[in-house]
């Protein structure tokens, strides 16, 4: 879902770029000393996940882990994803520097939204936690695909057909991502419950 350089129109680039700056500013303010390494850890996870392609069917897929990032980091998903995408653009020419704002917004905004909305559900019963974590993975990809399609549509690139396919074609990834997010969160709750600690003041602050 990396949009290449030179595809989008100016207003789309500027609008999403401004949104990314705001999101990153909020995200950076939420980061405190204890959370800093968690943010770095998830930025690394995002950076690596989208580089490792797993052959599946006729093509290949890779994880994005945006749902997980949003659940754990809340607003701080913005700086984490921004840094990871910046490095991907610089190292591998995935996306580009001008579209960095758009790509970051398309990935991070659904992550933050899913994280903030679904996080209270993690504290309730086990089944609600299972549903919430699965939905976090599933919905973050769904809305990321939708935002990417919308960016293309708004720029009127003549790719509106491709935009429609974009959302549909990501369906397997949404399912896989939901399952993986569920798996990772369950694992983290067992080995490192602190990372999802809901009682600490830092995290309740995140939810506000």
């Amino acid at each position: 879902m990396h949009i290449s350089e030179g595809v989008l129109s100016g207003p789309v680039l500027l609008g999403s770029g401004a949104a990314t700056i705001i999101g990153t500013a909020i995200g950076l303010r939420k980061v405190n000393h204890e959370r800093l390494m968690t943010v770095a850890l998830l930025a690394s996870a995002f950076f690596v996940a989208s580089l490792i392609h797993i052959p599946l069917g006729p093509g290949s897929v890779h994880l994005l882990l945006t749902g997980l990032t949003g659940l754990i980091l809340g607003w701080s998903a913005f700086p984490a994803i921004l840094v990871a995408l910046l490095l991907q653009a610089l190292f591998f020419q995935y996306g580009g520097l001008l579209v960095l704002g758009t790509n970051t917004f398309n990935m991070a905004a659904p992550a933050v939204a899913c994280g903030l909305i679904l996080r209270p559900w993690l504290k309730r019963t086990k089944s609600s936690r299972t549903t919430a974590t699965f939905l976090a993975g599933f919905c973050s990809i769904f809305f990321s695909a939708l935002l990417t399609a919308l960016s293309l549509r708004l720029s009127d690139t003549g790719l509106s057909q491709a935009a429609k396919i974009l959302v549909l074609s990501h369906l397997p990834i949404m399912l896989i991502e939901g399952g993986i997010t569920l798996f990772i969160v369950e694992f983290l709750l067992r080995v490192q419950p602190d990372i999802l600690d809901f009682n600490s003041p830092a995290n309740t602050n995140d939810l506000s």
Binding site: S50, L56, G57, S60, F92, I165, S169, L171, P172
Partner: peptide, 17 residues
């Protein structure tokens, strides 16, 4: 289940470049 299901569904061209 998801991985098996994912294999059966049409796979998108998720390449970066």
């Amino acid at each position: 289940l998801l991985l098996v299901g994912g294999c059966l569904l049409p796979s998108p061209s998720l390449a970066h470049k």
